[in-house]
Design a binder for these strands. Structure first.
Lengths: 173, 173
DNA sequence: GCTAACCTTTACGTGAACGTGAAGGTTGTG
DNA sequence: CACAACCTTCACGTTCACGTAAAGGTTAGC
């Protein structure tokens, strides 16, 4: 009778203990508890003996936090902001489903749109500046490749002209 | 005769004291000294009384550090790595200009290419993951906009069908 | 019902990236 | 040369994002 699914309840949520969550997400248990401490996520439930129990949406949320932290390089405070936006989004969704009044629906949608656009703006600003850094690096690469190609061309006919000062500019770095 | 340019010397380098550099870069003097402490940049010179004196290239370097830190979100250790690469690049450039032996030149260019490609790889990885996050956010935005458009459409002909359960799915947030 | 393997809270430790004095030397302007 | 406004080098303090150990409670298998 480990967790014999009650016949009345739904799809048997399958809750995970913190160690399993850590294995799944690549975070440490300490980190997960810390994220709870600073308000980034509450476990879906607690066991009888107060064990933290996480569901699938908690997993998603942790992965989202991780990608915001590692991929986008946001601080936990900024991530908290974005997650609050997510929460507001969810509340709005509830309200959206709860009404059919077009005026209300329009208001909720407009709020959601504003938040999403704020997020997109933050991410795009980061991406744009990163992109220009990449462009610069690529330009440097191409100058180097041009230099190598030039050597190849010279090497293809190395004995032809021993002293041909061809007007090839120095590939700067 | 504040700084009457010696007729023999070149373009009068115009060196800045640390406070001026701070104003120019938006960093604090402490931060600039700290970056020196951890080896990110040495001031171009010191005054008679040991004041730090910075030139234009120092300014560039600090701006570069700042954009790597703020825009790309790299740690100072990673930035140090990239700057070492830059230094190696510069040294290679010297050697490149100092030789005409194709074999040497090819070696230097190959080394430079490797480093630049490493940098590009780091930056592109970051950009790619950031990009997929942006895609997700954009997808959410489009669902919201679809919801609004739907409301607009319904509003354009609001009195036509009072009970037409059109098969329009709920725009999930 | 005993025990190993997990979990809990509490609390102090750590490395990165600076902030903030303290105590004294330097510079340039009147 | 006096003096305000810089600068210098210690050196300790702080915030963030966790690591790590201590002292105990819980769960699952036998």
């Amino acid at each position: 009778m480990s967790h014999a699914q009650a016949p009345s309840s739904g799809p048997a949520p399958r809750l995970l203990k913190i160690n399993e969550v850590a294995a799944e997400t690549g975070l440490t248990t300490r980190t997960i508890r810390y994220y709870e401490e600073v308000g980034l996520l509450e476990p879906a439930a607690r066991s009888e003996g107060d064990y933290r129990l996480y569901d699938a949406s908690d997993l998603d949320r942790l992965q989202f936090i991780r990608s915001l932290r590692d991929d986008a390089g946001f601080s936990l405070a900024q991530i908290g902001q974005m997650l609050e936006d997510e929460a507001a989004r969810a509340r709005n969704r509830e309200r959206l489903l709860g009404t059919t009044d077009p005026r209300e629906r329009r208001i909720y949608l407009a709020e959601g749109l504003e938040r999403v656009e704020r997020q997109i703006g933050l991410l795009e600003a980061k991406a744009a500046r990163l992109g220009s850094m990449i462009d610069e690096a690529r330009a440097r690469r191409e100058r180097i490749e041009a230099g190598i190609a030039e050597l190849d061309a010279a090497g293809a006919a190395p004995l032809a002209t021993t002293s041909s000062p061809s007007p090839t500019p120095e590939p700067a770095s």
